[in-house]
Simulated assay, not measured.
Amino acid sequence: MEFMNLIEEAMSGSVRSLGKLISLVENEAEDMQKVLKAIYPQTGNALVIGITGPPGVGKSTLVSWLAKKYREKKHSVGILAIDPSSPISGGSLLGDRIRMSHLPPSDDIYIRSLSSRGALGGISQATLNIVRILDATGRDTIIIETVGVGQDEVEVINVADTSILVVSPGFGDEIQALKAGIMEVADIFVVNKADQPDALKYVHTLEKMIQSISSYQSWVPPVIKTIALQGEGVKELMEKIENHQSFIKNDKSYLLQKKEKLRREIIRLAEQKISRELDHFLREKIDFDNILEEVASGRKDPYYLAEEMVRFFLKTRSEATKI
């Protein structure tokens, strides 16, 4: 089986085979499920960091510095840049290496730009699948940078072990808007461009907001000041990431959260499978032109017909199972 050869080669360090595996999963190729089932036992070893925040705060520069510093610690790094989907092709609109072009070329730093495919929160199932491929093929640290569209980015927590919200002075209105969303799920806050005027005042305001929503939490998210263009504050950020990792390993609620993430994923996968099978069934068995005519003329309502189609689908599936 060709996909097994790709897995073996990717695990042996072949970047080319890794890229092929990721394309296979991202494009939902025929062997995708076989690949994911084959690599799953090898997952669960990588540190997965999610980075989000408003556009223009310096997320990509910060990601580059983190990748560089983790490489200095001999980590193999994977970077997934989640971009908005093209409304026509479904592909990503931005480039991956354009934003991180100053990283030194190395097979130990793998950068991939992915389309959010319109998923709620900008994080698609494909992203989670690709994180697992990077994990299974030996990446020690995986960094996910999201599109940074605000509250919808709360979905990053479903993929990352440690979620980081990056902001900068001058984004006060955005912080207020984020309060009901990502602020509740961010594990670490980063105030980038900390050399700008009013940066300290901005940090204090943010700390007060965090205290107001974290009083019932055992982990209180720290606020780290960085100047990403110069790499300042990156070492302290990595220390806080390490602290958070140590914390969740000994936190019983984290295990419950992990189980809840898996529960939601299993339900989502089941829904996707049912949706695909229902779509195929309706195309094969249902005369939609006739149904649409009945609805358009007012002879039938869409609710009744939808219920009838589901009943027909379930009955047919039940009979097929008995056979």
Rank of each mutant, 00 (worst) to 15 (best):
M4T: 15
N5H: 13
I7H: 02
S14K: 08
V15I: 15
S17W: 07
N27R: 10
D31Q: 13
Q33F: 06
Y40F: 14
T43W: 11
V48D: 01
I49L: 12
G50N: 10
T52I: 08
G53M: 09
P55Y: 07
L62D: 04
S64D: 11
W65Q: 11
K68Q: 10
H75P: 00
I82A: 05
S92I: 04
S92C: 04
P105G: 06
L114C: 07
S115T: 08
S116T: 10
G122W: 07
G122I: 06
Q125R: 14
I130Y: 04
I133E: 01
G138N: 06
G138Q: 06
E155D: 15
A160Y: 03
D161R: 07
L165N: 01
F171C: 05
D173G: 04
L178P: 00
K179S: 08
G181S: 07
M183T: 03
K201F: 12
S214Q: 05
Y216H: 15
S218G: 00
V220S: 10
V220Q: 11
V223M: 09
I224R: 02
A228I: 08
Q230W: 05
K235T: 13
L237E: 01
E242C: 00
L255I: 09
L256Q: 11
Q257N: 10
K259V: 14
I266W: 09
I267E: 12
L269S: 12
E271V: 09
I274V: 14
F288L: 15
G298N: 06
R299L: 11
E307N: 13
E307Q: 14
R311T: 10
R317I: 12
E319L: 14
E319P: 00
A320Q: 14
T321H: 13
T321V: 13
